[in-house]
Design a protein around this nucleic acid. Sequence first.
RNA 1: GGGGCGGUAGCUCAGUCGGUCAGAGCAGAGGACUCAUAAUCCUUGGGUCGUGGGUUCGAGCCCCACCCGCCCUACCA
Length: 605
Amino acid sequence: MSKVLSAVAWPYANGPRHIGHVAGFGVPSDVFSRYMRMAGHDVLMVSGTDEHGTPILVAADKEGVSARELADKNNTVIVQDLVDLGLSYDLFTRTTTGNHYNVVREMFRTVHGNGYMVEQTTLSAISPSTGRTLPDRYIEGTCPICGYTEARGDQCDNCGNQLDPTDLKEPRSKINGETPEFVETQHFFLDLPALAEALGEWLDDREASGTWRPNVIKFSKNILEDIRPRAMTRDIDWGIPVPGWEDQPTKRLYVWFDAVIGYLSASIEWARRLGDADRWREWWNPAPHGGEDALSYYFMGKDNIVFHSQIWPAELLAYDGRGDRGGEPGEYGALNLPTEVVSSEFLTMEGKQFSSSRGVVIFVHDVLARYQPDALRYFISAAGPETSDSDFTWAEFVQRTNSELVAGWGNLVNRTANMIAKNFGEVPAAVALEPVDEEVLAAVAAGFETVGDLIGRHRQRAAIAEAMRVVGEVNRYLTATEPYKMKGDDQRDRLATVLHVAAQCVLDCNVLLAPFLPHSSNKVWATFGGEGEFMPMPRIEHVQDLDPDDGAGIGTYPIITGEYSGTPRWGRRPVEVGTTVEKPTPIFTKLDPSVVDEELERLGR
RNA sequence: GGGGCGGUAGCUCAGUCGGUCAGAGCAGAGGACUCAUAAUCCUUGGGUCGUGGGUUCGAGCCCCACCCGCCCUACCA
């Protein structure tokens, strides 16, 4: 048994999240975490909303509310979406808590003390009216190369040339149209070059493990070639104050030294709420102080690879004092670097890039309001952007739901339960197993090995396809044995045997599919007379900020947590003879093909 | 400009170390069956494996060039 940290990317709280987000990190991380718990590992799954930064300020200004109010609102929405999807976080928190602020400060002080945080002066664009940093992409102007009048500060969309905002002719703020001011400003930079060697060694070691997706390790090594210091602070008044610069309220830590630290701060918050304040160390500190066998898996979309395979490990190395400048770990002790950075690609929507502003978007909330959460989880697991971009279309969603979930798996559950209810009213005992019975039992049991191995290697599409292939084996078994033709008393024993075997196989398949389809696994469990919850589900709790005076002043806030110790083991559990089975109600709802047109029309609006 | 990824049956995609690799699922066609949400089961796929070269006894799989699509390029997060 290992300590397994499931570190899930922090959704940005500038609005509700769309299905591309949960396809990239949400569902894959939950499938993995649920499976690892079933396999007997001690999983700690953490995340939260990322609530600082310019986009949130801009969105808040637009709505006429404060940044904190906007973050509160979107945090509430996102928390509800994720819990409705059944994502089994041990703790889903926020970056605005006092606990997070304190952990970030401790990280900063130690990294600074170890010599990896250096001050540099840069030329930066600020908004004259607010004094806030204007990120390059919030500056527009005329391209000096092609004359395009709507070039952005980082790049001209017309000629494709990379630009510096100071190159633009007639620069203007995209936010309010005013002319930005370019001023010299002091910032703290993380000295990445001093950590490059250690980073390279870590990446070489990770590459040698052979477990990372090839494109992720390649990309990570590639960006290491051109490594340079990165600013960890910004001129902005919404974020975590910079230790040592408390007298400068318009200087705050940047997301690179904020959100990624959330993995650690959330682990600490989880332990504190548990009343066992040092418990987090089992996942974070190397042996002998921490867990003997602590593994960490980071889930995200490909746009976040640089954060997780460069910035965050560099910060950990700097904290540990393992770069060129040496140093000592701070009060948290030496911290483990990621075991694996599990990055997915992007989901597109009817062939186009998601874009909230252009209406090319489908929010998680809207899907869950109209369809079963497991239907979305199934689509994402079976057809998500695991190793290359993939496309979500309503036609494929309906088709996969109806022909695979409903007709394949749902129907197997239904026909099996129906025959048992009609003929026995309870799970019958097997009388005498014939070769065909032994064969299907063996074929299904083999699935625990094959499906589990695939999930462990982050090949979830192949894993769920394999599970569905096993479901097909059981459907074929019923067709081959024809229990529905066994009417006579002389066939009673054979009928009992076949239905007993079928029930066993259905419950086995339910285990195989449980990481992917936790909601329906509970229904299947109940259909065959199971007591209580089969797969534990997350819940929302409203809690007090643990350090109310140190954070952004959020007071009481909703967290996602859960009690997952009752998670069933990965493997066969003998079906209980004599359990009452009543006429079942279908597990999944079949979708009318008309929903394709309805949804496309919604998109068009 | 630089870096990366992809282009395989109508659709979505598998193809690990080059030699049963030309495949799966879905859709379509035909048939069987009726326990089940008209579900299930069986049969049915000849697609220049983006294009043109090359290496090799042999290449979707290796090399080169080109075409097309997508992503990244570090002050979006």
